[in-house]
């Protein structure tokens, strides 16, 4: 009995420590983003905002609600936010669609070289993306695709497709064949069966593949660092660090921008956690 209580207490204590470790830094960023500059730059430091202010958020988003400030940062920020959404959104939709079709071919359609193709694509998971950056850069320059949405999205697709295909393959393999056979007997063609019957059944897997691609593309740094040099395509992940390169580092502003960039992934974790976990477990080769 005593050991049972001790064990419960130890477990709760460990859970609390884990919670602080995981959320502490996020809390600290949020607290900083809500503090006035003079409350940020004090010693001893404030662990809680003595007075809450939205001035940093106003600098970043003010223009949206008709309150632009003199720095004009909001314009760059909005531009980068749109770029991030377009790049991550485009990569997510296309990668998921392509993986859904190609993985189906790899599981159910027999054609020469099927396994070779599949394993070669999955094997690229072991090739660090950075290996191809330099020739890719030269290729994109010659094609005029540097600093364009389509160029960057194509790179993202090639980077996230292997994992999405790997995941979709395990999803299709878990679906019973009998449903497809029944559709055959009723005279449905392959394409019809795939689009109208199989893919709807594989929706949870598709959501998982989409989430993994979105999180990866949303957080990408090195690819846009090289391929998105100007405001035309530069996403948040490249813009936000630039706030810190000036002589004066505005920590309130940086943390506010960081918190805003955290919102989409945080929403995914809160509302689509089940799909995310299933995807991670399947993606890990379970």
């Amino acid at each position: 009995m005593v050991s049972f209580i001790l064990r419960g207490t130890g477990q709760r204590l460990a859970a609390l420590l884990l919670l602080i470790w995981s959320l502490g830094p996020v809390y600290w960023a949020l607290a900083t983003s809500l503090m006035k500059p003079r409350d940020i730059a004090t010693s001893p430091i404030n662990f809680f905002p003595p007075e809450i202010t939205f001035e940093h958020y106003r600098k970043l988003l003010g223009g949206l609600i008709g309150l632009p400030d003199e720095t004009g940062i909001w314009y760059d920020f909005l531009r980068a936010l749109i770029n991030s959404l377009v790049l991550a959104g485009g990569a997510t939709v296309l990668t998921t669609a392509i993986a859904a079709l190609a993985a189906y071919a790899a599981v159910r359609l027999r054609f020469p070289g099927r396994n070779l193709v599949f394993y070669m694509i999955v094997a690229t998971l072991a090739v660090p993306g950075y290996t191809v950056l330099i020739p890719l850069y030269r290729m994109m320059v010659s094609l005029g695709l540097v600093d364009t949405y389509s160029g960057i999205i194509l790179i993202y697709i090639s980077a996230y497709l292997p994992l999405a295909m790997w995941l979709m393959r395990s999803v299709y393999e878990s679906l019973p064949l009998s449903i497809e056979e029944a559709a055959y007997l009723d005279g449905a063609g392959r394409l019809y069966t795939m689009i109208r019957i199989v893919i709807p059944l594989a929706t949870p897997g598709l959501i998982a593949a989409a989430i993994l691609t979105f999180l990866g593309a949303w957080g990408q740094f090195s690819v846009p660092l090289v391929f998105a040099p100007t405001a035309a395509t530069k996403p948040l992940t490249v813009l936000i660090p630039e706030f810190a390169t000036k002589n004066y580092v505005d920590y309130g502003l940086i943390n506010a921008a960081g918190i805003l960039a955290m919102i989409p992934p945080a929403l995914v974790v809160m509302f689509l956690n089940r799909f995310l976990l299933n995807g991670l477990m399947a993606g890990a080769g379970k």
Partner: peptide, 9 residues
Amino acid sequence: LPWALPPVV
């Protein structure tokens, strides 16, 4: 959550 956030942020 930390895994899902942008590494740069």
